[in-house]
Design a protein around this nucleic acid. Structure first.
Length: 473
DNA sequence: TGAAATGTTGGGGCG
DNA sequence: ACGCCCCAACATTTC
């Protein structure tokens, strides 16, 4: 065997297919030591706030990766501690001459990598995306702040093609002897999201790679909270169990003509939004602390812990909001349309700081990613650089009627509504006393009365935003 | 990747 | 036959 060992430091690229960092490590010609460092600092950071399910999903992913590595003559080494302590020690232990990892974008990740680089020979390869954040810039070299021109520039760059995706290695040469590895705990099972690369690739194939696949109905179906019209790949993207480049290849192959905007092109656009938010965080780490649009930093949010609690628990009295919040708590995932509805409700109806919603999502989402989550919240709250206009306020009843027309979604997550007639299932407070009795859904007893009156709340919100804008101008 | 208020149009009922 | 009103349907404007 030629060459000294290379350490393949795995962070959020838990896969063997199309993994540039892994291939770079293999090309060194020596043994490859795959290592995952469990970094206690990550559990304390606000934007990586601990979620039991996300932790379980990660643990499951590590186990799956270890199994895939063992099938190729290697194994996953898990070590606990600060990376700038653990990695230099491991370098010495195995006599490695390089540590290779995929680049990352969050402020914490970049500080961590800088610290490691000062004590170990670290080489970063790529980023968890198709186009590296430093590569999609305006002609003057500044990062884009508006999505549409970003998307245009993103598409103008060379896109991956299937024959360029990096094959899964058939074998990984290992160092002689046995390296110590911490045990991976037996995780809570997540029936809706089995962890691992094999499952991720199954989902990508099922979603995108057949003539009848859901991707072809994505434009129409993705907003229907009562249907399985989305890819459900977000947790797998979060931990790199699927390659973003492979996803883009699948989308482009599903619609080679890029005809219309009904299916694959719409999904591809969602992938570009993901890259937009990762890129934004890379260039503007402050977005994690404050609104990226300065005029919206002055909004006086309500201090309303009881309302916040009701929102978190799914007790607002608006079925579409409560159903979505229950789905989040019970499964660690929420339909994207529902995310917009509950975010609009927290920020626009309750006038509660978007950062509290962002934080709650991070505590519960399996796919919780600082960049995408922050971007989504700033967008809905209307405080981002390229956000929804502040006066765009979702009406939870209209949204529900439009995107859950049969009431199947609210009834699934709120069984108390099971016998409420469809006519009023999205606004049960309008049921007459006898109807409430007959449906077993007495408002204020079996199901809460609305905690705010959506129709009456509009002016309060518009006033708060107007005032912020005026105080800044 | 809204919603509500306001404006316009046109068909039909009616005296 | 005609003007009038009502109102749904659609378009435009405003936040």
């Amino acid at each position: 065997m030629r060459g000294r060992p290379a350490i393949w430091w795995i962070r959020r690229d838990l896969r063997l297919f199309d993994n540039p960092a892994l291939i770079a490590a293999l090309q060194r010609g020596g043994p490859v030591v795959p290592v995952f460092v469990r970094d206690p600092a990550l559990l304390r950071s606000r934007h990586h706030r601990r979620s039991v399910r996300r932790q379980a999903f990660l643990d499951g992913g590590l186990r799956a990766l270890d199994a895939d590595l063992r099938a190729r003559g290697a194994r996953l080494i898990v070590r606990d501690g600060a990376p700038d302590m653990v990695l230099p020690a491991l370098v010495t232990e195995v006599g490695a001459d390089i540590v290779i990892a995929e680049g990352d974008v969050s402020p914490y990740a970049r500080r961590r990598d800088a610290a490691v680089r000062s004590v170990a020979p670290l080489e970063l390869v790529g980023a968890p995306m198709v186009h590296h954040p430093a590569s999609v810039l305006k002609p003057d070299g500044a990062p884009y702040s508006v999505f549409t021109p970003f998307s245009r520039a993103w598409h103008a760059r060379v896109l991956p093609e299937r024959h360029l995706l990096l094959a899964t290695p058939v074998a990984l040469p290992r160092v002689p002897g046995d390296l110590m590895s911490a045990a991976i705990p037996d995780a809570v099972s997540l029936p809706a999201f089995p962890a691992g690369e094999a499952e991720a690739l199954r989902r990508l194939r099922r979603f995108a790679e057949s003539p009848e696949a859901a991707i072809h109905r994505y434009g129409a179906d993705r907003d229907r909270v009562d249907r399985d019209g989305t890819s459900t790949l977000s947790p797998y993207f979060r931990f790199g169990m699927v390659s973003p480049r492979a996803a883009v290849v699948a989308a482009c192959e599903a619609d080679p003509e890029a005809a219309g905007r009904t299916g694959p092109a719409v999904w591809l656009s969602e992938l570009v939004w993901r890259e937009f938010y990762l890129t934004t965080l890379f260039h503007r780490p402050r977005v994690l602390q404050e609104a990226s649009n300065a005029s919206w930093r002055e909004i006086v949010w309500r201090d309303a812990p009881q309302d916040l609690r009701a929102w978190q628990d799914g007790r607002t009295g608006y079925p579409i909001v409560d159903a979505a919040m229950r789905q989040l708590i019970e499964t660690g995932w929420m339909h994207n349309r529902a995310r917009m509805i509950v975010a609009s409700f927290l920020t626009k109806d309750l006038l509660i700081d978007w950062r509290l919603g962002e934080s709650w999502f991070m505590e519960h989402l399996i796919d919780g990613d600082p960049a995408a989550n922050n971007g989504g919240w700033q967008w809905t709250a209307g405080v981002g650089t390229d956000a929804a206009p502040y006066f765009r306020i979702f009406n939870p009843v209209l949204q529900a009627k439009k995107f859950d027309p049969d009431g199947a979604y609210v009834k699934r997550w709120l069984p108390v509504l099971a016998r409420v007639p469809l006519r009023l299932v999205h606004e049960p407070w309008r049921l007459g006393p006898l109807e409430q009795q007959a449906a077993g859904c007495r408002i204020g007893r079996d199901y809460p009365a609305p905690i705010v009156d959506h129709r009456g709340i509009r002016e309060r919100t518009l006033a708060a935003y107007r005032q912020a804008r005026a105080s800044k101008a």
